[in-house]
Simulated scan of single mutants.
Amino acid sequence: MKLVTRAALGWPPSAAPLQSATNGVKVHYEGTPVSLRLLDDHNACLAEWKAIRASHLANTVENYSDVAYNYAACPHGYLLEGRGIGRRTGANGNQDLNRAHYAIVGLVGSSGLTTPTDPMLDAIRDGIDLLRDNGAGREVKGHRDGYATDCPGGPLYAWVQRGAPRPGVTPTPIPEEDDMTPEQATQLKKIYDAQVPYSGWQYKGQGTQDAWALLNSAATTATAAVKSVAALGAKVDALKQPVLTSDQLTALAAQVAAHPTLADRIAELVADKLATRLAD
């Protein structure tokens, strides 16, 4: 991390309100033209950052206590300290929305320098990680998420939507809805290990037995059990006597022995039938 502190900028400690935690970080841009000169001159970046702070302190409408952002990131990969750690952002003026997220601004704008460099994206990630280490949540959003604005501009917002990855690092893909993560596959295996005496099952059938064949077998067993419950219900409905005969009791006992997990369901059916009889 290439950090430029407030002290190095010649600034006193921030007078912004204290805040120990947020939901995460929101990414911003300047929203005004930014000179391409910043690409070749780091001193121009420092001057730009100081000018932003001066304009904020001069804004009597918003009444800023400091530069609005916690950090800025320049095209050369430097993270420039603003309000810093543990200070509420002023990026949404004087609104309560400032409490939700810390703010990092990339020194790009609406024209001129509009596309962040890879070092700038690295610096923004440095700021995100630093703030996470000091109370920020996991959310990374653009300023436009929850606020009516074009900020942080098209290029930066597209990066945020990709998960704000470091340059050269491919984000971990999100599994499709019809696919299982390895963790889900492990959970499913544990379920079947508890019911089926078989140890060769592996994720997506990569074992000595096809996992999906095992699932189909389980589905067939479940279907048969449902049909058995329906048949038992029909037998109970067919009973006309107020008390079951010995043969009927024996038949029901045999069914329960074959499907012990259905005992509660049989009891419910019998209870419903008896309640109907009493009501009649």
Rank of each mutant, 00 (worst) to 15 (best):
S199M: 08
G200Q: 08
G200D: 08
G200I: 06
W201V: 13
W201P: 00
Y203T: 09
K204Y: 13
K204T: 10
G207T: 05
T208C: 10
T208P: 01
T208A: 15
Q209V: 15
D210Y: 07
D210N: 11
A211D: 11
A211I: 10
W212Y: 11
W212E: 06
A213R: 01
A213Y: 02
L214H: 05
L215I: 12
L215P: 00
L215T: 03
N216R: 10
S217D: 04
A218C: 08
A218L: 02
A218Y: 00
A219S: 04
A219N: 04
T220E: 05
T221K: 02
A222Y: 01
A222T: 01
V226I: 14
V226P: 00
S228A: 13
V229G: 01
A230C: 02
L232F: 04
G233N: 09
G233M: 09
A234N: 08
K235W: 03
K235A: 15
K235R: 09
V236A: 11
D237L: 12
D237E: 15
D237A: 14
A238K: 03
A238L: 12
A238S: 10
L239E: 11
L239W: 09
K240G: 10
Q241R: 09
P242V: 12
V243R: 05
V243Q: 10
L244R: 07
T245K: 13
T245Q: 11
S246N: 10
S246V: 12
S246R: 13
S246L: 14
S246F: 11
S246I: 13
D247R: 09
D247Y: 05
L249I: 12
L249N: 11
T250L: 12
T250K: 08
T250V: 14
A251C: 06
A251E: 14
L252T: 15
L252V: 15
A253W: 03
